[in-house]
């Protein structure tokens, strides 16, 4: 079989992965690896830390030092690695439920300290691993397996949360923006300080199916057709509404 150009950086022995057809996580790993290679960092010093959930499994597929930790605790685990050995380039790849709900406190405090970490927060609007329950990012009125009549809770605006907490670099892209996402990964990795890239990603199995975007392709088309690039704007106004526009771009890049 022909080798994939990124096979050297994946744990191919662990394939096939557990992600559903139409999931965006394959694209996320792909963009991350390309962005990482472009950064020219010494790969022996790059460490991936994940929490729990679908995205939490990313650590297990990337062939670098990688830690699959407890639910919500990827950021403080990463903090320990980085503080104890500043030579390490520590990257957290985890989901919105993991980083923003159960791990929300750790996220804002790491941003407040401006710890030199790179966080990729994959937002699919639900808890995928457990079957599509609503989460901290589920848009108001969106249907999930625990909000059959529509979510009644307001979601977090992740870039605004990170920026207000003191992050040095904040961007949002979707899995339909692979080149821009790849570039954002490189920038975030090379940024000294706390960097967060939110990656809006499809979950057709749960979120899409229950919100009139039945396939992964439907969700990708929605991302493509409804994303508006507004780099440099105050992320205060970039909250996401159900089936509404998605404002993407690089919002914060402090010197």
């Amino acid at each position: 079989m022909k080798k994939h150009p990124l096979d050297d950086y994946l744990r191919v022995a662990r394939m096939p992965h557990i992600w559903c057809p139409g999931c965006g996580l394959g694209l996320v790993v792909n963009c991350f690896l390309r962005g990482l290679l472009r950064s020219q960092l010494n790969l022996d010093k790059v460490v991936i830390v994940s929490g729990i959930g679908c995205t939490g499994r990313a650590a297990g597929y990337i062939n670098l030092d990688s830690f699959h930790t407890t639910h919500g605790r990827a950021v403080p685990f990463a903090t320990g690695l980085k503080v104890a050995n500043p030579e390490l380039e520590v990257v957290v790849i985890s989901g919105d439920g993991d980083l923003v709900a159960i791990g929300g406190n750790h996220l804002i405090h790491a941003a407040r300290r401006n710890t030199d970490l790179t966080v990729l927060c994959v937002n699919n609007f639900v808890y995928g691993m457990t079957g599509g329950q609503m989460g901290p990012t589920t848009p108001l009125t969106a249907r999930t397996t625990t909000s059959r009549g529509g979510s009644v809770d307001r979601p977090f605006n992740i870039p605004h949360l990170a920026a207000a907490s003191g992050a040095a670099y904040v961007a949002r892209w979707t899995t339909a923006h692979v080149r821009r996402l790849e570039k954002a990964v490189t920038e975030a990795l090379l940024k000294k300080g706390f960097s967060l890239v939110e990656i809006v990603s499809p979950c057709p199995t749960y979120y899409g199916r229950m919100n009139k975007q039945v396939t992964g392709l439907d969700q990708m088309k929605y991302f493509r057709d409804n994303s508006v690039i507004k780099s440099g704007i105050d992320p205060k106004g970039v909250g996401i509404e159900v089936n509404g526009p998605i404002v993407v771009g690089k919002f914060i890049d402090r010197g």
Binding site: F67, G72, P76, G80, V83
Partner: peptide, 26 residues
């Protein structure tokens, strides 16, 4: 060495494990 004051004990214990894997007695 390094002292870090965490936001809670959940984070403290996680940071200790991370530091240990970085090769430090923690």
């Amino acid at each position: 060495g390094n002292y870090i004051q965490m936001e809670d004990e959940l984070g403290s214990m996680a940071a200790v494990l991370g530091a240990s894997w970085a090769g430090t007695k923690a």
